[in-house]
């Protein structure tokens, strides 16, 4: 069949067709604003961040730490058992040096998003950014520590941690 079709359907337009208005088009700018409730688990997690703590929950059936804190264990499908308070140190599991932003736009200065395994969580990672480090020197397995915003600037959000910086054991 595939080789019998002579003319495959589809009229490809060029950017210029839009820019120079060679074809008709219309635009719609949605005005969609959302207020997402953080809920039980995340609510406590963010309250913890406001206070400079990383909060998880533990399921005593599968013995996992759930991070960020969540109200139920999705493996055992039951309520979790307790809150756990974790250190603000961890290990880089994987990272990127990102030159593109949320709109696929080019960034002048790259950002370094990393998956950071939080100490005491048995290898559970959270998404965050690295700072105070030359991108060339970032390695998987690198030890990092949270750099917090000053307490009065915190708002109960993931951005209450500015970024994570490399650190050596035994230092602050």
């Amino acid at each position: 069949m595939s080789e019998k079709i002579k003319e495959w359907p589809g009229v490809a337009l060029k950017d210029a067709d839009i820019k120079e208005k060679k074809v008709l088009f219309t635009e719609w700018r949605p005005n969609l604003k959302y207020a997402w409730d953080t809920g039980v688990g995340y609510g406590r997690y963010f309250e913890g961040l406001r206070n400079g703590r990383i909060v998880g929950t533990r399921c005593n059936k599968c013995h996992r730490v759930l991070l960020p804190a969540r109200a139920f264990c999705e493996w055992c499908f039951r309520t979790v058992d307790e809150w756990v308070y974790l250190k603000d140190t961890g290990t880089v599991n994987t990272f990127s040096i990102a030159y593109t932003g949320t709109q696929a736009e080019r960034l002048k200065e790259p950002r370094i998003p990393a998956l950071i395994e939080i100490d005491g969580s048995n290898g559970v990672g959270i998404m965050h950014l690295l700072g105070e480090v030359d991108p060339k020197n970032v390695k998987n397995g690198m030890r990092v520590k949270a750099v917090w915003k000053p307490k009065e600037q915190r708002q109960g959000a993931i951005t209450d941690i500015k970024y994570w910086k490399p650190f050596e054991e035994g230092t602050r």
Binding site: Y34, G43, E47
Partner: peptide, 10 residues
């Protein structure tokens, strides 16, 4: 103290 987070689709 549980607060919403605000956002939009850009």
């Amino acid at each position: 103290q549980v607060q919403p987070w605000y956002g939009e689709i850009p």
